[in-house]
């Protein structure tokens, strides 16, 4: 038997499972799971200046197994909001938490109906999440991309660009574009780059520590292949604070192109690609997990500001007169 013991132990070692940390399925267990998931996967502690251990000490005493799930949710969402991150949401069966101050503390700078009614008299074209047409003044084309959630193919984008081909330039309006899929933003950007372009860098976590990050991975976008259309005439890219996430990244790629002027207001940022994890009680936490830098290796999480001379906000007096100050300014840059 003594001879067999090492063999049995070896066999157990061979077939035993690698451990996975487990948490209890109650409020306290959920809290530990939530705190740990963020601790191990969130990517912007340093940039946001958040001491996550201190946050734990602040909120842990507020949690008990006797509190209701709604009360518990409120404590957890307050804790999550300490990250000040629009990409970090706690989802339960009855509510999803949002940190809204990244946009609510800024002017809205966009009124959809103002353009639809006063510039197009509701006579614009629409394809998916895109509206487009020729503006009444200056022979300037206008494209508003409201989201990158759904994909348009290169052929679809060709149809839009060919419809505006005789214009002197384009205003691409990504105000209130809350993002979506990076690949959909890439599909649009490839129609505006003339040669292989460094799009940015990605940095992912390599372990649970707050400093466990990979080397920045440089990645490139290629122009869309012929016979698809690459737009080389002047472009003005219009942004506001609600230009977020994939739209923020689209802005960083587009503004690096020589024919593109970035104007409007600072974007909302959201440069962390979110990943999701679960809590034992079935809730889900989404958080910024991979940092995407711009083509110069600069972090864009706080937002991307247009060059100072192209910064403009909407004047509400103009809006009452039916004019979009920011759009008019963008058009003037092309005329």
């Amino acid at each position: 038997m003594q001879r067999l013991l090492p063999l049995i132990i070896s066999l157990l070692f061979l077939v035993g499972c690698h451990p996975i940390e487990e948490f209890e399925n109650n409020n306290e267990g959920d809290f530990q799971a939530l705190w740990t998931a963020i601790d191990e996967h969130y990517c912007f502690f340093k940039e946001k200046g958040v001491d996550w251990e201190e946050v734990r000490h602040k909120y842990e005493p507020k949690v008990s197994n006797t509190m209701t799930r709604r009360e518990f949710f409120r404590v957890c969402s307050d804790m999550v909001n300490e990250l000040k991150d629009g990409h970090t949401n706690l989802s339960s069966g009855f509510e999803t938490s949002y940190y809204r101050k990244w946009w609510s503390d800024y002017p809205e700078n966009y009124i959809e109906r103002l353009i639809e009614q006063n510039y197009f008299q509701f006579n614009y074209k629409q394809l998916g999440t895109v509206i487009y047409g020729i503006l009444p003044e200056g022979n300037v084309g206008y494209i508003h991309i409201s989201s990158f959630q759904s994909a348009l193919g290169d052929g679809n984008i060709d149809w839009i660009l060919s419809d505006l081909a005789l214009c002197n330039g384009l205003v691409i309006d990504v105000r209130n574009n809350g993002g979506g899929n990076m690949s959909n933003a890439e599909a649009w950007a490839r129609h505006f780059i003339c040669k292989r372009t460094r799009a940015g860098y990605m940095i992912h976590k390599t372990g649970p520590g707050h400093s466990d990050f990979s080397e920045p991975y440089e990645f490139f976008y290629e122009p869309v292949a012929a016979p698809h259309i690459v737009w080389e005439k002047p472009v003005v890219l219009l942004t506001n604070r609600s230009t977020f996430s994939a739209a923020n990244f689209f802005t960083s790629v587009m503004r690096s192109q020589p024919q593109v002027i970035h104007c409007g207001a600072t974007t909302g940022g959201g440069s962390g690609m979110p990943a999701s994890y679960e809590l034992p009680g079935g809730w889900s936490i989404r958080m910024s997990a991979v940092s995407v830098l711009d083509s110069k290796g600069k972090i864009t999480e706080p937002g991307i500001a247009p060059p100072r001379r192209y910064e403009v906000d909407m004047n509400m007096d103009d809006a009452f007169k039916g004019r979009d100050t920011m759009l008019d300014f963008a058009v003037s840059l092309i005329k």
């Binding site: 992912h204 990943a275 991979v290």
Partner: peptide, 9 residues
């Protein structure tokens, strides 16, 4: 994949 690496990367 790496610890926090997304398939997009």
């Amino acid at each position: 994949p790496d610890y926090g690496e997304l398939y997009y990367e």
